[in-house]
Nucleic acid binder design. Structure first.
Lengths: 110, 110
DNA sequence: TCAATATTTCTTGAATTGTTGAGATATGCA
DNA sequence: TGCATATCTCAACAATTCAAGAAATATTGA
């Protein structure tokens, strides 16, 4: 992951509505959820929900798919995992100390 | 972790200078690094470095400690891990599917 | 084709945030 | 005490971003 991509993702998540949306979609897993439902859970009017979902999609954190008259959004778990990996890359210079500093989310390959 | 805390952390990381600073401090591990050195690595003038480090500290992502005339900053790895845990809490509703959607950074207790 | 549902686009105004540069504070040493 | 180093604080300006509501687009079924 590149810095610019990480910044896009982090900026996208720096908003209460979008953070709630992403967390809701995380719990929804592979099934995803339609825009209307997501907006409801996040407490956003349809217009706002559309705007924020577009921002999440633009950041690459979610992927839209039209199904009939609904648009289903799903978390891109690779992107989310990649973002986390980016944050803790080369943790402790590769030689972790006593504390479990690299513990919570270490994934070298990301 | 609460939403407001997560938002503070994510907002703090939504800036190129601060993101570089945090990543630099992650590689520095427990030793941390002095403000001047951090600013240099992030390409920020002392004034800017101070401002951004204060923002990171305010968000709870780093912790300052004065050592002689320098101020050493260290990543709060618990806070960073907690943030990641918050993002993927209740991943896939607790029943992960085929894909390793909950893989990269799962830590239930956070 | 017409009506209803689901979602997106557009416009305006308000609020937040980043940058810069100078000046202030704290520490260490002669 | 007086100087140099390391870091922080402050004020004005520019740029980005969010919210709200009305209107437009796409899909479905009668």
């Amino acid at each position: 992951m590149e810095e610019s991509q990480a910044l896009k993702s982090l900026s996208a998540l720096s908003d209460a509505t979008r953070l709630r949306m992403l967390r809701f979609l995380v719990t929804a897993g592979e099934d995803g959820a339609p825009a209307g439902s997501i907006g409801e859970h996040a407490g956003a009017a349809p217009s706002r929900a559309s705007f924020h979902l577009a921002a999440l999609a633009q950041a690459g954190l979610v992927v839209p798919e039209r199904v009939s008259r609904q648009i289903i959004y799903r978390v891109d778990f690779d992107a989310l995992g990649g973002l986390m990996g980016y944050l803790i890359e080369d943790c402790c210079g590769g030689h972790p100390t006593v504390r479990a500093c690299c513990g919570p989310a270490k994934r070298t390959g990301a």
